[in-house]
Amino acid sequence: MNKKFNMKKFLSENSAVVAFVLLFVIAVCLKNTTFLNIRNLTNILLNNSIIGIVALGMTLIIITGGIDLSVGSQLAATGLFTITVFNQTGSIFLGIAAGIAMGMVMGLATGALVAKCSIPAFIVTLGTMSIYRSVAQYFFKGGGILAQGDKVDAFVAISNTRLFGAIPLPILYWLILAVIIGVFSNRVATGRRIYAIGSNEKAAKLSGINVDRVKIATYMISGALVAAASVVEASRLGSMNSASSGTSYEMDAIAAVVIGGTSMSGGKGKIIGTVFGTLTLGIIDNMMNMLGVPTFLVSAIKGAIIIIAVLFQRLLDTEKK
């Protein structure tokens, strides 16, 4: 009896891990050799590392009780800016620094509007999503930009190098950032305050927490992570496009966070859950690809799985009570 109860608690607290393992086993059963080969597994990780990085920041924002719909547009805008600065100055460092600074400024703007002006995050970022995308398209006339110059090989190498000739670097960037953000959310004062604010903003404020400042910091951290993801993407492709780069990334990132067990109403969630949530989405993509599911149906199946995942968590939650 007692053991069964603990099992349920384990399931509900680690539902993302469970979903991941479940899908993994299904994938192995269906397509044993094609799925379970190092190259395929590496590809799943690689193809999801950019969304994985974006989802880390999204997790923090959703834990505060907010949301950011503009991450896809932010990714396009910061990536375009990074390549532009890189092309102009020939400096990789300046390019990346400029992109990350821009991401943080965007986060600052969103955070300030959400915290100081008390506009719901959904509305603010619905607006900034259009603004960033539209302005980017205006400056680049709807087109894109190629990385150029003497150091272009080094720039492209950022994402297209394999450690020991086996592990693509973007996977490492993702996992290192996941560990940093994980530690931040658990072991740093601001990280803990994010949870307090998301669970009960009034109580957090009356506990001497500067709620506005923590919220703004959260959006700025997310902005920096989005910019980092955009560097990975820009380097991987050697280019960025104002119309197509980053489109619908916000949906994938939110899906990864939700599958990872973070509550949309804030206050609850774990970085490790989001990592597994991202992987779960990745495996779904990969499986459908292997099974030859028609391209136009892929999104429908993904959508259904997101709903099922959350329904599953709900059931576990109510049973716990």
Binding site: R192, Y195, A196, G198, S199, N200, K202, A203, A204, L206, G267, K268
Partner: peptide, 12 residues
């Protein structure tokens, strides 16, 4: 409403 943060432990 204003005192406890219900998603958190006693320690937190």
């Amino acid at each position: 409403e204003n005192g406890i943060i219900k998603d958190m432990s006693v320690a937190d």
